[in-house]
Design a protein around this nucleic acid. Structure first.
Lengths: 149, 149
DNA sequence: GCGTCTATTGCAACGACTTGCAATAACAGG
DNA sequence: CCTGTTATTGCAAGTCGTTGCAATAGACGC
């Protein structure tokens, strides 16, 4: 399989990085990476599979998920979990941020780096635990629902 | 179906509370409640199903999960998600606490009310969001792994 | 005790992943 | 360019839950 000149930014060197680790650059992985290269922010696992299938109808879900595992090792994506526990992928190292979800009204939103770091510090102060704040969606009640309820 | 004299503490009145809401007291629900009454702390959904099946081989998973939904409405259990996103139930209102999981060494542990509240306050200070800190398992690196890595 | 109303159950199919395994195909070396 | 090694793939089966629907059976009123 050929190199990957046409891919943007961090993705153009994935092939080499894989080979350097004794791993392989396959067409299936290329498909996943092409899809990721067009994505920014978050994608659910299922959606990623669907987009890959749109590009290559023969896409197999298990291959996609296994590829994502490998890419996570290479620090190109990070997986997390939505409010319902389903997988969500953060594409390309994005700013540290958190996800909030109101169990009452169902709204979801993000909190920026600043607040994310504040929360992380509070937690670290206890026993040195370094939270990956973006990994899970924090569930609770938003100000409005808390006031109403 | 008869009442439930033999059940302990908060469970003995579930039948009445259900009926008061126009819901029903069924043998299947009794089975789930009997299992919950013998449980304290956390149980995964799958384990709950298994324990119900041990008590009544005809137990159907969907019935168990639906029962848990109802019991959550009655505030007798609360569901959350483990590090892998799978469901976990907190039985009987327990102290506010949090769950930590180190992605590196795989260990999991809890943080007590005090720290949980501290984190919740930090977050609330931002925009009034009241986190249900026990809902998800916070993932990151423990002090030891952070130091080593 | 009987009947009605409708909440629940059981079942089957589906959605999101995960895992084991044999067959395939990258890739390094000659 | 060919070859051997072994990482990956495809597939099938399995786990954890969720959902739609027709049949069942609680609970209340008479």
């Amino acid at each position: 399989m050929d190199a990957n000149e046409s891919l943007p930014a961090p993705w153009d060197t994935v092939g080499e990085r894989l080979r350097a680790r004794g791993l392989r650059w396959t067409p299936q992985r290329r498909t996943v990476i092409e899809v990721l290269a067009e994505t920014d922010g978050h994608v659910s696992g299922a959606e990623l599979v669907e987009r890959c299938r749109a590009r290559d109808a023969s896409t197999i879900p298990s291959t996609v998920y296994r590829t994502l595992d490998v890419l996570e090792d290479l620090d190109l994506v990070r997986h997390g979990h939505g409010a319902d526990g389903r997988e969500e992928f953060h594409v390309r190292p994005v700013d540290e941020h958190g996800h909030l979800h109101c169990a009452e009204c169902g709204r979801s939103w993000e909190i920026g780096t600043e607040r994310a770091v504040a929360v992380a510090s509070t937690l670290r102060a206890g026993d040195g635990f370094e939270i990956d704040i973006g990994h899970v969606t924090l569930v609770g009640r938003c100000r409005e629902c808390a006031a109403a309820g």
